[in-house]
Amino acid sequence: MTMLLEIRDLQKSFGGVHATKNVSLDVLEGEVHAVIGPNGAGKTTLISQLCGEQFPDSGRVRFAGKDITRASGPARAHMGIARSFQITTVFQDMTLLENVSVSVQAHDGHSFRFWADAGRDAALNAKAMTFLEEVGLQEKAHVLSREVSHGEHRQLEIAMALATEPKMLLLDEPMAGMGTEESQRMIEILKRFKGQKTMLLVEHDMDAVFALADRISVLVYGELIATDTPAAIRDNEAVRQAYLGEEAA
């Protein structure tokens, strides 16, 4: 398998606090790679450096063979990194279909088209609908997103990320705030794309992580302490102490 995302010696500190300490990590094409770690481990900082919201102090990030360390957020999106957000960030005043079509539109050339009604753009809507179907939301296509449940918002997030037809999905806690049943549905949805889409999954929900991940990296105080298969991570003594042990206690 080829390497899709290559992180090398990434460093980021805020006034003396090392949020990211010498992190090197590879995501292989087609794998689901989970990043876990206790609160304050620096997962959010890592993600924001991967999607261009913050830039590292030193180190490099390569994606699909190109250096993207200093690329802007929109540029990264165009290269094929799609992200979902930890806090739901769908457009509340638009219908679900409109939400997804904004995503589709993003990769459909520029949007400096001022006159034609986007709501009547059959090709745009049809394409958006296929992504809603992929996450099972087609029935609610014409409902305003402010009127659907939290779990459905999360599914919509995934559809919006998929709609940009990315090479890699960067999923920032897709299970955040979900009940057991909703989480289960989300795991099922993500499983469908396993093997087809490369995913970097940052998640707290251990059931989800162990159900989905091919490999797991463990981040503690900004530092990567292990990267291995789920089974090996489960047995890793350092991980147990730093992370799982803490949870058990």
């Binding site: 999106a77 957000f85 960030t89 005043d93 638009m94 539109q105 949007s111 986007a118 919006m160």
Partner: peptide, 22 residues
């Protein structure tokens, strides 16, 4: 109501999200 309009409405609602979409 155009594609352009959706972009500015989207960025009003959530600029960060729009940037992440590209």
């Amino acid at each position: 109501n155009s594609r352009f309009g959706r972009v500015i409405r989207g960025s009003m609602s959530n600029d960060k999200r729009m940037k992440a979409l590209g």
